[in-house]
Amino acid sequence: MELKEQIIEATIEEFNEKGLKFTMDQLAKRMGISKKTLYSVFSDKESLFLEAIDTCFSEIKRSEKEIFEDDKLDTMEKIRKIIIVLPKRYQAIDFRQLYQLEEKFPKMFRKIEARLETDWEPTIQLIEQAIREGKIRRIEIPVLQTMISSTIEAFIKTNVLIKNDISYTNALEEMICIILDGIRVKSSET
């Protein structure tokens, strides 16, 4: 693994332990490298976080592609998995801590927002396929896309998950269940 990737991995570990409050000094110490070496790769904490965000979203997109191409999954399973996908190496990240970003690192928060709102084409194709297959009713896809993006943004923009002791993963799973299955109790469940 090249140094840049090792730094991003160590950044994730620091973030999980300390949230955004860790220092570049602590990061260098964790890695057993000098701050000078660290700063030769990333000029500051913000550029490091921006690169980590890109890396994370690139891996999410790779995972989405794997789900999209998995012939063992039906259309609805693919939709469910793609919308809440988190690659294994990011499942341990406490995304609930990201609410601090908007105030302290607005540039990073805007980058996350932009990434959440782009690259929806494979998901839209699956939704259109599910409509054609009669698995979901005809819907306005931009409304669904906005609902999902806005919900995820709310999870990372506020501390609602922390206040209610809900993990980020559980929140995503609950969101997709509500969206795909609704909130009405089925007659067989009463």
Rank of each mutant, 00 (worst) to 15 (best):
residue 127 I to M: 15
residue 111 K to A: 00
residue 138 R to Q: 11
residue 121 E to Q: 10
residue 126 L to I: 11
residue 127 I to T: 11
residue 118 T to H: 08
residue 132 R to S: 02
residue 105 F to G: 08
residue 96 R to F: 06
residue 137 R to V: 06
residue 123 T to V: 14
residue 95 F to G: 11
residue 98 L to S: 07
residue 115 R to G: 00
residue 120 W to T: 04
residue 94 D to Y: 00
residue 113 E to N: 12
residue 97 Q to N: 08
residue 97 Q to C: 05
residue 88 K to M: 08
residue 119 D to F: 11
residue 91 Q to E: 14
residue 88 K to N: 14
residue 85 V to K: 13
residue 121 E to G: 04
residue 112 I to N: 13
residue 103 E to F: 05
residue 118 T to Y: 07
residue 93 I to C: 10
residue 125 Q to V: 10
residue 136 I to W: 08
residue 84 I to Y: 13
residue 106 P to H: 01
residue 131 I to E: 07
residue 104 K to T: 06
residue 98 L to D: 03
residue 117 E to R: 12
residue 128 E to V: 08
residue 89 R to F: 09
residue 134 G to F: 07
residue 84 I to W: 04
residue 124 I to E: 03
residue 98 L to Y: 04
residue 123 T to L: 07
residue 125 Q to L: 13
residue 89 R to P: 11
residue 106 P to Q: 00
residue 129 Q to E: 13
residue 128 E to L: 15
residue 125 Q to C: 06
residue 122 P to T: 01
residue 111 K to W: 08
residue 127 I to C: 04
residue 113 E to S: 10
residue 129 Q to H: 11
residue 96 R to P: 00
residue 124 I to C: 00
residue 110 R to G: 09
residue 126 L to M: 12
residue 106 P to I: 00
residue 136 I to S: 14
residue 111 K to D: 00
residue 120 W to F: 07
residue 131 I to T: 14
residue 127 I to L: 15
residue 113 E to A: 13
